Amino acid sequence: MMDVGALQALRSVAALGTLTRAAEELGFTASAVSQQIKRLERQVGVPVLAPAGRGVVLTLAGRAIVDAAPEVFQALERCAQAARSVAEGAPRGTLRVVSFSTGIRGLLAPVMARVAERCPELRVHITEQEPGQALHCVDAATADLALLHDVDGLPVPLPPSLTQRHLHTDVGDIVMHRTHPLASDASPLAAGDLAGHVWATSPPHTVCHQWFRRLVAELPKEPEVRHLIDDFSTQLSLVASGEVIALIPRLARPPLPDGLVVRPLRQPPKREVYAAWRRSAQASPAIRALLAELPRQATAAQVQ
């Protein structure tokens, strides 16, 4: 019979391209993963990997195994979920969650105490991952639930083995010091109102920098970006100097220091946030328990 651990190892190697990266994801050494793959080859009687430069590629037989693997893992998970359901469906054990950083800050962290109080036998473990890697982790069963955001307005492609639920629409606001000229009015800002002001922004190639570029795209003059800072708390510390303004997503916004003011935008940049999990884990009491808390927090985050 085919070894399930070896099958999972092959699946991770197929997704990540090297034994070393697969070992890091699975928590093993590269040597241990190599031994699992060799065991799998002995079980099926044919090679499943071939060397390719510094990495490896799947043979045709290896690809056929990986393509059929989701059905195996889904069947095993349905067995586990059936057993948990017999035990009164109480959330227990460990729930492995992967999420982008501001999803952790704005949605997950605020509900952890409530989940712990309502589900004392459940332990939630959270790891920061960008959406593409988070989806891979859930699909490969190294995580149970992912929080994702769309990329440049386009949802992350979802593997057929996964399902998702919309949680939240995150928007960006402009933050400034109370002495800044834009702070004198509480009405929503138009893009044209931002002309001539100095900025602290997220670095290029981040979602928030893309938001910023769209926001200022039609201004008559290129805005002055004085600071490129990835951490939003640090951006706010620079805004507190009174010299710069910043575009901050609501999910990312910590409690504002005294003296800072938030102005909404008439046409704010947006991103949609989703939770994704394996279809075979649909009945998981742990996933259901966490999902029950997240919409309430998402509503709170929307109006902050």
Rank of each mutant, 00 (worst) to 15 (best):
D3V: 14
L10R: 01
A22Q: 06
T29D: 11
A30C: 11
I37P: 07
R42Y: 10
V44E: 02
G45R: 02
A50N: 12
A52Y: 12
V56A: 08
T59L: 09
E71H: 09
F73L: 10
Q74N: 14
R78F: 05
C79I: 11
A80Q: 10
A83H: 03
A83R: 07
G89H: 01
A90I: 11
P91K: 01
R92E: 14
R96H: 09
R96W: 10
V98A: 12
F100N: 06
I104P: 00
V115S: 03
E121M: 08
V124F: 08
Q129H: 15
D144E: 14
L145S: 03
G153Y: 13
P157I: 06
P157C: 09
P159K: 01
L167R: 02
T169P: 01
T169F: 03
T169M: 07
I174R: 04
V175I: 14
M176T: 12
H177F: 09
R178V: 13
L182H: 04
A183W: 03
A190N: 07
G192A: 14
G192C: 04
H197P: 11
F212C: 03
F212I: 07
K221P: 00
P223V: 08
H227E: 10
I229L: 15
I245R: 00
A252M: 04
G259V: 09
L265W: 06
Q267H: 02
K270A: 08
E272F: 13
R278A: 14
P285L: 01
I287K: 00
L291T: 06
E293Q: 14
P295T: 07
R296F: 08
T299R: 04
T299H: 03
V303T: 12
